[in-house]
Amino acid sequence: MRAGVGDIVAAALLVAVAVAVVLLTLDFPPPGQPDDPGAATFPRMVAGALAVFALLLLVQGGRSEESLPRGRALLRVVGVVVLLAIYAAVLEALGFMLATMLFLVGALLLAGMRRPLMLALMPVGVSLTLFYVFSVLLRVSLPRGVLERFIF
């Protein structure tokens, strides 16, 4: 079995990670006590193992690779990741409920939901329910914004 493009890219990345790890360990302090291998030894051992496995990947080649998405499918995957990043960024500023509602509208649109009623009801219902269950019933703290102060 020959290595495919995916294997070659993966192996190159992994070797790069291994080299970076070893380079970073050069600044680690020497062991604090005699006979301790020190803070740098174990990371170097693991990085070495990673490099060896990466080379084995080239020799042996992998199986069962799925092709990466293209076109609309790719847009949907990237879209979800971007939405999640924005969601995380505005979570504390907007409060849980407002941020969640906006995220859900976006994510439902990406999932192909086109019915306006569901696009309005589901985000409101899910964010209200989750906030009530976590914050009120379970006392798990979630960021509070305008909506939370107004309702609960």
């Binding site: 979800v80 979570l91 504390e92 969640t100 995220f103 859900l104 994510a107 439902l108 798990v140």
Partner: peptide
Amino acid sequence: RFLWPTVLVLSVVGSYALRSNP
């Protein structure tokens, strides 16, 4: 497919709530 957005919200809650840390 309409459940996955809610799964994502739960994932964010689970990651955030442990230390209240974005």
